Computed example of a mutant assay.
Amino acid sequence: MKENDMSLDTLQDVYVDQLQDLYSACEQAQKVMDDLTAKAESEELRAALEHGKSGISDGRAQLAGMIKAHGADPKGEHCKGMQGLVAEARAHALDAEFGDGAVRDAMIITQYQRMTHYAIAGYGCCAAFANRLEHLDDAKTLGGMLDAAYSGDRHFSGIAMGDVNRAAAE
């Protein structure tokens, strides 16, 4: 039995479980974002991380509303996948020793994008479930969250391929 004692008998059950997983993922990611932002050297990267923090917070609030609308507790699941990604971010971007701030910035981007890719997978699956279950308002909201995650991922790639990776390679 899962730690939240929820039986996954229907697609609706899977849908709510995965919304809770995403809620937990956002909650955990939010906690490491302040530290990543504080360590970033690039102004452009710091601004992007601040925007990312806002997006995570907004997403968490939207997920909480959806979960409650389906009669469940947003905190019904603990996302072990994001727990691992956050531990990796701390180990590789925060706790590691770097000889240069630009090299750390490159690692911060790497770790942030790994967390973002987890969100992309989750939002995509949940949006597909919502569409199949005809939860059309949820599907629209999740589609918007998915689009925002893709956009953020592309923005971080642009930062990396611009000044950060060039400075880190010098």
Rank of each mutant, 00 (worst) to 15 (best):
D153S: 07
I67Q: 15
A47Q: 11
E88L: 05
S24G: 05
Y23P: 00
T110G: 15
G71Q: 09
R166T: 08
V14R: 02
E41D: 15
D163G: 11
G65D: 12
R104A: 02
M161T: 05
L11K: 01
C125T: 08
A61E: 14
D21L: 04
C26K: 12
G158F: 03
F156P: 01
L94F: 03
A91H: 03
Q113L: 04
G152C: 13
E77C: 04
M145C: 10
K2R: 09
H155V: 06
A89S: 06
L8Y: 02
F129N: 08
R132A: 06
A64Q: 13
L85P: 00
E3Q: 09
L146S: 06
H135R: 14
L94Y: 08
I56R: 11
C126L: 02
D95M: 08
L146V: 00
Y15S: 06
D163R: 04
E3H: 11
G65I: 06
I67M: 04
I67V: 09
L94S: 08
N4D: 13
A93Y: 03
A48L: 01
S151D: 12
S151A: 14
R46A: 12
L142G: 10
I108Y: 12
Q18E: 15
A25G: 14
D95G: 09
K68D: 09
A127C: 10
H117V: 10
L146W: 04
A69G: 12
E43I: 00
E134Y: 06
A148R: 03
A40G: 12
A91E: 14
E88Q: 10
G143H: 09
L142S: 02
M161L: 13
I108H: 10
I159L: 15
L49I: 02
I120W: 06
A167C: 06
L19A: 05
D13P: 00
A96R: 14
G55I: 00
G65H: 11
V16C: 07
G52L: 12
A149I: 00
S57Y: 04
S157L: 13
R132P: 00
E50D: 15
L36G: 01
G65C: 12
E41R: 12
G124D: 09
A102N: 07
A69K: 11
H135A: 06
F156V: 02
A48Q: 09
Q12D: 13
S54M: 07
R114N: 12
Q30F: 09
D5Y: 10
A48T: 01
R154E: 14
K53V: 00
A148W: 03
G143M: 05
F129T: 02
L8T: 05
